[in-house]
Amino acid sequence: MSDQTNISPEQIRMMKDVLIEHVPHARALGMKVEDAARGEAWLSVPYNEDLVGDIETGVLHGGVITAMLDNACGIAVQLSLPERIAIATLDLRIDYMKPATPKLDLNAHTHCYKVTKNIAFVRGAAYHEDEEDPIATCVGNFMLAANRAMPMPISEELRQQADQVLGGGKAE
Protein backbone atom coordinates (compact mmCIF):
# COMPACT_ATOMS: atom_id res chain seq x y z
CA MET A 1 0.00 0.00 0.00
CA SER A 2 1.49 3.24 -1.09
CA ASP A 3 0.14 5.95 1.03
CA GLN A 4 0.72 9.02 3.09
CA THR A 5 -2.25 8.48 5.38
CA ASN A 6 -2.02 5.64 7.80
CA ILE A 7 -5.20 3.66 8.04
CA SER A 8 -5.26 1.04 10.73
CA PRO A 9 -6.32 -2.52 9.90
CA GLU A 10 -9.27 -2.03 12.22
CA GLN A 11 -10.42 1.03 10.32
CA ILE A 12 -9.99 -0.81 7.04
CA ARG A 13 -12.15 -3.66 8.32
CA MET A 14 -14.79 -1.10 9.15
CA MET A 15 -14.50 0.53 5.72
CA LYS A 16 -15.35 -2.77 4.05
CA ASP A 17 -18.74 -2.62 5.70
CA VAL A 18 -19.30 1.05 4.99
CA LEU A 19 -18.43 0.73 1.32
CA ILE A 20 -20.21 -2.48 0.47
CA GLU A 21 -23.02 -3.10 2.97
CA HIS A 22 -25.49 -0.84 1.22
CA VAL A 23 -24.87 -1.97 -2.38
CA PRO A 24 -27.27 -4.80 -3.28
CA HIS A 25 -25.58 -5.57 -6.60
CA ALA A 26 -22.17 -5.84 -4.95
CA ARG A 27 -23.64 -8.24 -2.41
CA ALA A 28 -25.27 -10.27 -5.18
CA LEU A 29 -21.88 -10.68 -6.86
CA GLY A 30 -20.21 -11.63 -3.55
CA MET A 31 -17.99 -8.57 -3.79
CA LYS A 32 -15.77 -7.75 -0.84
CA VAL A 33 -13.40 -4.92 -0.02
CA GLU A 34 -10.19 -6.72 0.89
CA ASP A 35 -8.08 -3.71 1.61
CA ALA A 36 -8.25 0.05 1.45
CA ALA A 37 -5.96 3.04 1.62
CA ARG A 38 -6.28 6.72 0.84
CA GLY A 39 -7.47 6.76 -2.79
CA GLU A 40 -6.96 3.04 -3.28
CA ALA A 41 -9.13 -0.04 -3.03
CA TRP A 42 -8.64 -3.77 -3.34
CA LEU A 43 -11.74 -5.84 -4.04
CA SER A 44 -12.52 -9.50 -4.66
CA VAL A 45 -15.29 -11.47 -6.32
CA PRO A 46 -15.30 -15.23 -5.69
CA TYR A 47 -15.67 -17.57 -8.66
CA ASN A 48 -19.31 -18.47 -9.10
CA GLU A 49 -20.82 -20.59 -11.86
CA ASP A 50 -23.79 -18.24 -12.05
CA LEU A 51 -21.44 -15.53 -13.37
CA VAL A 52 -20.06 -17.57 -16.25
CA GLY A 53 -20.21 -16.12 -19.76
CA ASP A 54 -20.05 -19.38 -21.69
CA ILE A 55 -20.92 -22.73 -20.14
CA GLU A 56 -18.62 -24.46 -22.61
CA THR A 57 -15.54 -22.73 -21.22
CA GLY A 58 -16.53 -21.86 -17.64
CA VAL A 59 -14.95 -18.43 -18.09
CA LEU A 60 -16.54 -15.57 -16.13
CA HIS A 61 -18.43 -13.04 -18.25
CA GLY A 62 -16.63 -9.80 -19.05
CA GLY A 63 -19.56 -7.97 -17.48
CA VAL A 64 -18.62 -9.34 -14.05
CA ILE A 65 -15.24 -7.69 -14.43
CA THR A 66 -16.92 -4.49 -15.58
CA ALA A 67 -19.18 -4.46 -12.51
CA MET A 68 -16.30 -5.16 -10.16
CA LEU A 69 -14.00 -2.51 -11.66
CA ASP A 70 -16.83 0.03 -11.73
CA ASN A 71 -17.47 -0.51 -8.03
CA ALA A 72 -13.77 -0.62 -7.17
CA CYS A 73 -13.18 2.66 -9.02
CA GLY A 74 -16.04 4.32 -7.17
CA ILE A 75 -14.63 3.20 -3.83
CA ALA A 76 -11.16 4.48 -4.71
CA VAL A 77 -12.72 7.87 -5.48
CA GLN A 78 -14.62 7.90 -2.18
CA LEU A 79 -11.40 7.03 -0.36
CA SER A 80 -9.60 9.95 -2.01
CA LEU A 81 -12.13 12.60 -0.99
CA PRO A 82 -11.88 14.62 2.22
CA GLU A 83 -15.59 14.24 2.84
CA ARG A 84 -18.29 11.91 1.70
CA ILE A 85 -20.18 13.35 -1.23
CA ALA A 86 -22.27 11.74 -3.93
CA ILE A 87 -20.28 10.68 -6.99
CA ALA A 88 -21.39 9.47 -10.41
CA THR A 89 -19.49 7.53 -13.04
CA LEU A 90 -19.05 9.60 -16.17
CA ASP A 91 -17.31 6.94 -18.17
CA LEU A 92 -15.39 3.75 -17.78
CA ARG A 93 -13.17 2.05 -20.32
CA ILE A 94 -12.18 -1.57 -19.85
CA ASP A 95 -9.46 -3.31 -21.85
CA TYR A 96 -9.63 -7.08 -21.70
CA MET A 97 -6.15 -8.61 -21.77
CA LYS A 98 -7.05 -12.26 -21.34
CA PRO A 99 -9.99 -14.37 -20.24
CA ALA A 100 -10.40 -15.08 -16.53
CA THR A 101 -9.28 -18.59 -15.61
CA PRO A 102 -12.22 -20.83 -14.65
CA LYS A 103 -12.58 -21.58 -10.92
CA LEU A 104 -10.24 -18.80 -9.84
CA ASP A 105 -11.44 -15.82 -7.79
CA LEU A 106 -11.17 -12.31 -9.19
CA ASN A 107 -9.28 -9.47 -7.57
CA ALA A 108 -9.17 -5.80 -8.44
CA HIS A 109 -6.98 -2.91 -7.42
CA THR A 110 -8.00 0.64 -8.26
CA HIS A 111 -6.28 3.94 -7.67
CA CYS A 112 -7.77 7.41 -7.80
CA TYR A 113 -4.72 9.35 -8.96
CA LYS A 114 -6.16 12.82 -9.44
CA VAL A 115 -9.06 14.79 -8.05
CA THR A 116 -10.04 18.19 -9.39
CA LYS A 117 -12.90 20.43 -8.31
CA ASN A 118 -15.43 18.52 -10.35
CA ILE A 119 -13.81 15.32 -11.59
CA ALA A 120 -11.93 12.35 -10.16
CA PHE A 121 -9.63 10.25 -12.35
CA VAL A 122 -9.18 6.56 -11.62
CA ARG A 123 -7.40 3.59 -13.08
CA GLY A 124 -7.22 -0.01 -12.08
CA ALA A 125 -6.79 -3.64 -12.97
CA ALA A 126 -8.51 -6.97 -12.44
CA TYR A 127 -6.36 -10.05 -11.92
CA HIS A 128 -6.22 -13.44 -10.22
CA GLU A 129 -2.97 -13.47 -8.25
CA ASP A 130 -0.55 -11.10 -9.89
CA GLU A 131 -1.51 -7.54 -10.61
CA GLU A 132 1.28 -7.41 -13.20
CA ASP A 133 -0.55 -10.10 -15.17
CA PRO A 134 -3.97 -8.47 -15.50
CA ILE A 135 -7.16 -9.94 -16.88
CA ALA A 136 -8.34 -6.42 -17.60
CA THR A 137 -7.33 -2.84 -16.98
CA CYS A 138 -9.60 0.14 -16.71
CA VAL A 139 -9.66 3.91 -16.63
CA GLY A 140 -12.62 5.95 -15.52
CA ASN A 141 -13.78 9.47 -14.71
CA PHE A 142 -16.21 10.34 -11.97
CA MET A 143 -18.18 13.49 -11.39
CA LEU A 144 -18.10 14.83 -7.85
CA ALA A 145 -21.20 16.07 -6.02
CA ALA A 146 -23.17 14.68 -8.90
CA ASN A 147 -26.53 14.98 -7.25
CA ARG A 148 -28.10 15.97 -3.98
CA ALA A 149 -28.61 12.44 -2.75
CA MET A 150 -27.25 11.55 0.63
CA PRO A 151 -24.13 9.52 0.02
CA MET A 152 -25.23 6.30 1.67
CA PRO A 153 -27.46 5.17 4.50
CA ILE A 154 -25.14 3.95 7.21
CA SER A 155 -25.50 3.64 10.91
CA GLU A 156 -24.34 6.52 13.09
CA GLU A 157 -21.63 4.32 14.55
CA LEU A 158 -20.23 3.46 11.12
CA ARG A 159 -20.57 7.08 10.09
CA GLN A 160 -18.37 8.19 12.95
CA GLN A 161 -15.83 5.51 12.19
CA ALA A 162 -15.88 6.48 8.52
CA ASP A 163 -15.24 10.09 9.52
CA GLN A 164 -12.10 8.96 11.30
CA VAL A 165 -10.83 7.15 8.24
CA LEU A 166 -11.93 9.68 5.66
CA GLY A 167 -10.96 12.70 7.66
CA GLY A 168 -14.41 13.80 8.72
CA GLY A 169 -16.86 15.87 6.80
CA LYS A 170 -20.55 16.49 6.62
CA ALA A 171 -22.92 14.12 4.99
CA GLU A 172 -24.78 16.86 3.23
Binding site: H22, V23, P24, H25, A26, R27, A28, H61, G62, G63, V64, T66, A67, M68, L69, D70, N71, G74, T89, L92, I94, N147, A149, M150, P151, M152, P153
Partner: peptide
Protein backbone atom coordinates in the same frame (compact mmCIF):
# COMPACT_ATOMS: atom_id res chain seq x y z
CA UNK B 1 -34.81 -6.62 -9.47
CA UNK B 2 -33.40 -5.35 -6.22
CA UNK B 3 -30.11 -7.18 -6.78
CA UNK B 4 -29.30 -4.70 -9.58
CA UNK B 5 -29.31 -1.67 -7.32
CA UNK B 6 -26.03 0.14 -6.79
CA UNK B 7 -27.29 3.17 -4.87
CA UNK B 8 -30.32 2.47 -2.68
CA UNK B 9 -30.66 6.14 -1.68
CA UNK B 10 -31.55 7.52 -5.10
CA UNK B 11 -32.31 4.64 -5.85
CA UNK B 12 -30.26 3.83 -8.95
CA UNK B 13 -29.13 0.76 -10.83
CA UNK B 14 -25.50 -0.27 -10.35
CA UNK B 15 -23.29 1.16 -13.10
CA UNK B 16 -21.53 -2.16 -13.37
CA UNK B 17 -24.81 -3.96 -14.00
CA UNK B 18 -25.66 -1.45 -16.73
CA UNK B 19 -22.19 -1.84 -18.25
CA UNK B 20 -22.50 -5.61 -18.19
CA UNK B 21 -25.94 -5.36 -19.80
CA UNK B 22 -24.59 -3.15 -22.61
CA UNK B 23 -21.74 -5.55 -23.19
CA UNK B 24 -24.12 -8.49 -23.33
Amino acid sequence: KEDLIGNPVLPALHGGAIGAFLEM
